[in-house]
């Protein structure tokens, strides 16, 4: 039995979740259907800004977890500084409602998650590639675990003369 890494939410924030021991972030688990609801609740509590929106790919469990970190600037004392929303998604054709109407700051980060993981954010007005080349990475999702980066050798030992031309 591993050491307990998460404890029950005992902060004043009236939202169900668990506090992670390592960094004191409040972890809120939700589903794609309830994501907008949770987001609105958090916004009402004063969480005005999205720090990060990204995902973690778990091919062994056959799922992908959308992870949103939210913070606010005028939080009442006793509230956790960082709230982490976790949404489990299927690896095939993942879809979640866009958070852009709740938090404007999520605009570019949703575009990044779209190009890196292929998550479709329904309702995002301008969902397209932002960092990568749209032609070359049309069907490639670089941050998924099945995308393997080919490491080139530092020195080409065999036939290196061929490359010199």
């Amino acid at each position: 039995m591993a050491e307990e890494t998460e404890v029950k939410n005992e902060t004043k924030l009236p939202i169900e979740g668990s506090l992670r021991k390592s960094d004191q972030a409040l972890v809120v688990k939700t589903t794609p259907q309830e994501l907008l609801d949770t987001a609105n609740k958090l916004k009402e509590q004063g969480y005005t800004t999205v720090v990060s929106l990204s995902a973690v790919d778990y091919p062994k469990d056959g799922k992908m977890t959308l992870i949103v970190h939210v913070t606010g600037y005028d939080l009442p004392p006793g509230y956790p500084k960082m709230v982490e929303i976790q949404v489990d998604l299927p690896r095939e054709n993942p879809k979640v409602p866009s958070l852009i109407n709740v938090w404007t700051s999520v605009d570019f980060q949703e575009r990044e998650a779209f190009e890196m993981f292929g998550i479709t954010f329904e309702g995002h007005p301008d969902l397209r590639h932002i960092l990568l080349d749209p032609e070359e990475f049309k069907d490639l999702r670089p941050l998924r675990k099945d995308f393997v980066v080919k490491e080139e050798n530092i020195m080409l030992k065999e036939n290196w003369g061929d490359y010199r031309g």
Binding site: A2, T5, R20, S22, D23, A25, V51, S52, S54, V56, I67, H69, M82, E84
Partner: peptide, 21 residues
Amino acid sequence: PKGEAYARVEAGRGEYFYYVV
């Protein structure tokens, strides 16, 4: 050990956020 953690730092241009798994 297994787990997740975030950390943030105030850099010159603003806040750096790291989330490691």
